[in-house]
Design a protein around this nucleic acid. Structure first.
Lengths: 160, 160
DNA sequence: AGCACTACTGTTATAATATTGCGAAAGGTA
DNA sequence: TACCTTTCGCAATATTATAACAGTAGTGCT
């Protein structure tokens, strides 16, 4: 996330917290900032390491902040990676889908109504009440595919 | 899984392993049996506890067997639960979706082409090559909803 | 300001999940 | 049999997450 989006995300979080009557403490702001600043999903202990620079911190510190941010919808948890990522549209609740590149590690968040809809429909057919749909697709992003396929046209490793 | 489905699952696994030229060892068979016998998803350490009855076993024993069974498509891993479940149709590779009841813990495996399709389409639009789609929906199953809603018509806890 | 209340934080310990590395055993093949 | 590959046993350790409890700080009230 670039500096501008980051500032925007922090500001948005601040406003939403005020509206919702919950506290956007320094600790929580700091963790949100660290998650958003990262190019890729970050693990709880990575965040912890950064928190420890200059201060003392233990796992519950991070997990509590993350729990809060998750509840408020400011970050998402990627279950397949045990890692966290800043939400790209925190203003409204939403069902998202994540495209996770196994090559570069970057993640794209989708908000695709066709997917969400077909899932709702399928669940309803069985009488199931969907509350938290988790959709994470592991694969290869466009950028990394180009890289790999170019390399693939000539042998990746010189023949011996 | 009832006894008949279990025997069927084991037989199917055996045949598929023979066809694929991989070994269906006693260890692997035993772990598959334990996973399939369970009514709900089971954690690796639950399996381990059962393996230890009468023998000695350590975590790698279970995880190695599970890795094999996952590769062969005989079991699925539920990422949101850190638990494993027997596959209901191991004969062909497939993208499944799981409806996980937070109340009773039971899981229904779907194989819904509309969901899989819309996901493929959405991924393709961004040039992403989907390799392993993970779809797990937490919610409440039909059975548990009925229970809860009935209870809800009259107060669940007697008034004081 | 003083007080009570609640929400948040710090700290220690520990639980739960998963992997690494190494050497021994078992199965398959010439 | 000798050889090779795969699987297994075992000890240690890494990684992710939570519990329990005491202290602190913000919030609302008088």
């Amino acid at each position: 996330m670039d500096e501008e989006s980051l500032q925007n995300a922090l500001k948005t979080a601040e406003i939403l917290c005020a509206q919702r009557g919950v506290r956007f403490t320094a600790q929580r702001r700091r963790v949100l900032e660290l998650v958003c600043r990262a190019e890729r999903p970050v693990g709880a202990y990575e965040i912890l390491d950064q928190l420890r620079e200059g201060a003392t911190a233990a796992p519950p510190t991070v997990y509590r902040a993350l729990d809060f941010l998750l509840e408020q919808g400011f970050v998402h948890k990627l279950e397949t990676l045990h890692a966290f990522i800043g939400c790209t549209h925190p203003e409204h609740p939403h069902a998202s889908q994540f495209l996770i590149c196994s090559d570069c590690g970057r993640v794209k968040e989708l908000e695709n109504e066709a997917i969400a809809g077909s899932l709702r429909t399928a669940a309803q057919e069985t009488g199931f009440k969907a509350e938290r749909p988790i959709i994470e697709v592991l694969g290869t992003c466009a950028h990394c595919r180009r890289k790999t396929e170019q390399a693939g046209t000539s042998p990746r490793v010189p023949l011996e």
